[in-house]
Simulated scan of single mutants.
Amino acid sequence: MADDTDDTDSDLVAGERRSDLLAALSYVSTDYGPDGEYIVNGDLPPEVAPPFIRAIMRVEAELLLHDAELVTVDNEEPRTPDERRTDAFVALVLRIDDRP
């Protein structure tokens, strides 16, 4: 049986094809907020959202496991869930851009 996948299809990032994640990122935009914060906006259509959501969740799970190792009596939670989700988004974008 012939292999119908090409090199880009076999290039996975957080368990998803890099090309699918790049397609989803094309719907993401950024703005500056009133206090200088960086706001990320994304209205992903249903046909591109699932791989992106799965990838974000996988990276967030990695960060959660890492955070669990940092929990001590003095340091109850290393980062909030919102901080962890933001960090997962940034980590995923960096991985997408990190070509072999």
Rank of each mutant, 00 (worst) to 15 (best):
Pro50Met: 12
Ser19Tyr: 01
Asp11Val: 03
Pro34Gln: 11
Phe52Arg: 00
Ala91Arg: 06
Ser10Ile: 08
Asp7Phe: 12
Asn75Lys: 09
Ala49Val: 04
Ser26Arg: 11
Val48Ser: 03
Val13His: 00
Glu83Arg: 11
Leu65Glu: 15
Val28Phe: 04
Asp87Phe: 01
Ala68Trp: 07
Pro46Ile: 08
Gly42Lys: 06
Asp4Cys: 08
Asp3Phe: 12
Ser29Glu: 13
Glu76Gln: 10
Leu12Asp: 06
Gly33Tyr: 05
Pro78Gly: 03
Val59Ile: 14
Gly42Asp: 07
Val13Ile: 15
Pro45Val: 11
His66Ser: 14
Ile96Tyr: 01
Arg99Gly: 05
Ser19Ala: 14
Asp11Cys: 09
Leu92Cys: 08
Val90Ser: 07
Asp82Phe: 08
Asp67Val: 04
Met57Gln: 13
Ile56Asn: 05
Val13Ser: 00
Thr86Gln: 05
Glu69Met: 10
Arg84Asp: 02
Tyr32Cys: 04
Arg58Gln: 13
Leu12Ser: 07
Ala23Trp: 01
Tyr38Leu: 14
Pro46Asp: 15
Glu47Asp: 15
Ala88Phe: 01
Arg85Cys: 09
Leu44Gly: 01
Ala88His: 00
Leu94Gly: 10
Asp31His: 15
Leu70Trp: 03
Val71Leu: 05
Glu37Pro: 00
Glu47Asn: 09
Ala68Gln: 14
Pro46Leu: 08
